[in-house]
Design a protein around this nucleic acid. Structure first.
Lengths: 307, 307
DNA sequence: AAATTTTACGAATGACGTAAGTATA
DNA sequence: TATACTTACGTCATTCGTAAAATTT
């Protein structure tokens, strides 16, 4: 296997017809060129240059190798350039997966920020709910997974959402609001005690997503009567506005869609979900991914609805 | 500039998803692979692999570089193969320039011998008279120049035809014959004294080629009366057969064309020309050229007409 | 005599393997 | 516990530059 540096030397020797000229051109000393050519000839198993008078001329094998060297060196140059573009954030792709209510606020703002700073970066995006998004991160389907969790949700994450084998970037705490019809008897209160909603009909997420609601209600002594089940925040609010029940929604969801016929009030005891961005530990060292995480963190810090 | 060995390691790591598997595959130890990958990442300026669980997966930059590596490595492999073919005499071209009377006997036989032994070699051939053929050798127009010379012809060659800055392979001594019409008064003698031909009309080569004849005659005390001038041996013999003169021809020329109406007899004092193959000193180390020189030497040794 | 290549040699750098340490399933 | 990657370190090979010799115009 030929050394690419040797091929570059060969090309320069072929072009200039002289070792010393090639040395000057490439920033070596003469003897270095001489030695590199000898090494190349040893590797080739045949002379590559002949000395005629005081200039150097390529043999047939030298000419052949020089032709290939052109191909090889240009492929190497374009590889170098493309990799450098990725390392220098002039190109590259970052794949983000987020849960739906993060998608409409946090993620678009972060993507906008990243691409404003680094126009060559392409940030791809897909939606998935927390357990699935982290799975897909582990499987290599994405680079960053946005997930949310409630305290005590998952035993192997700590207070900041860190998981053993993933790098976690805590973004923000997303407060939960009681969502009531505008004309509800408690609508004028600034805060609403969850226990006061014990007798209401509830609109909740799908069975997999309603865990926190059920748990929070249980903590204050009741089981919510869930009469509608939907993960669509617009639908939830439509149902509430029609006086068909009440709901518990996170601030981010209310930022993205806020029906005029409903009011949202912080609940007591206060309840929050932690929003965390995850990536693989090694991927955090990839600059394009790091800057995307930075932008997510910045956008989250500027959110109005954080707790 | 990336090291091609590193690229091969990257390819193997990408294929197997494991450093140890790549190490087994390439005949290295694990740590060697680990270090090569680190060196490659340092050169790339960005991580190329991520460790997920116990397997290694390529990053975007890794994938990009791996794609280029395929191109580069295949170009390297074909360069290696083509150069090895030349070094191994399975391919290659040897350019020979010879004087005309060498062309019809020595050279064809040598070419046949070379290509029988090494069917992949292509021996090219062109004609030129001695002073020109050596010039073209120095200019890189050919690899081997066949030339002849007479003693004392050229002060900077020694008894074997060696010239200071060229590699010389003495091939054979080519005896000169007096060529007479079959009915000539001296035709029955076994040897002919040049002095006995002092009164004849002579057929000689072109002014540039007749030097030796004039000199040899002068040495025995006469100046030949040159009435016809041609470098074509067939024409020379035709003229002799028509009793228009006598000539002095080398054995090789008579081997190629022998008119039935003439007789050829060694002259006294004996006169020979030395036939020598020249090449550039460095080119003698090129195997295809060396084997061609060998074949020329062998063919010359088998010639019937050597002195 | 000026320029170029080769040879010789010493210093710095780099690469590989062994062995021990850390992490994963 | 077995497999795989990383780190540490000693050794060996390679590479480069300086200096001197040989060669060419």
């Amino acid at each position: 296997m030929f050394d690419s540096r040797h091929l570059r030397v060969l090309r320069e020797v072929a072009r200039t017809g002289s070792y010393s000229a090639a040395a000057r051109e490439l920033g070596y000393t003469q003897p270095a060129i001489s030695q590199q050519m000898r090494a190349l000839e040893r590797a080739a198993g045949t002379p590559l240059v002949v000395r005629v008078g005081r200039r150097m001329r390529l043999t047939e094998a030298g000419e052949v190798l020089n032709r290939h060297a052109a191909t090889i060196l240009s492929a190497l140059a374009s590889a170098e350039e493309e990799v450098a573009a990725i390392a220098g954030l002039r190109a590259g792709r970052v794949r983000v997966i987020a849960f739906p209510s993060g998608s409409s606020t946090l993620v678009p703002a972060a993507i906008a920020k990243v691409t404003r700073r680094h126009p060559g970066l392409r940030v791809e995006f897909a939606e998935a709910e927390p357990p699935e998004s982290v799975e897909r991160l582990r499987e290599g389907d994405c680079d960053i997974a946005l997930a949310f969790s409630y305290d005590g949700d998952d035993p192997d994450q700590d207070a900041e959402g860190a998981v053993a084998d993933l790098a976690a970037v805590p973004l923000c705490a997303d407060r939960l609001y009681a969502v009531l019809p505008a004309g509800h008897r408690l609508a004028r209160r600034r805060r609403i005690r969850l226990a006061d909603l014990a007798g209401e009909r509830w609109i909740a997420g799908c069975p997999r997503c309603r865990g926190h609601l059920v748990q929070a209600c249980a903590a204050v002594g009741f089981t919510p009567a869930i009469t509608f089940s939907t993960d669509d925040v617009a639908v939830v609010q439509g149902l509430v506005a029609a006086d068909l029940g009440v709901a518990l929604l996170p601030g981010l969801a209310l930022d993205s869609v806020h029906h005029s016929g409903v009011v949202a009030r912080p609940v007591e005891p206060p309840s929050v979900r932690r929003i965390t961005a995850y990536t693989l530990p090694d991927l955090a060292a990839v600059r394009s991914i790091a800057v995307t995480l930075d932008s997510l963190r910045e956008v989250a810090a500027e959110l109005p609805s954080r707790a």
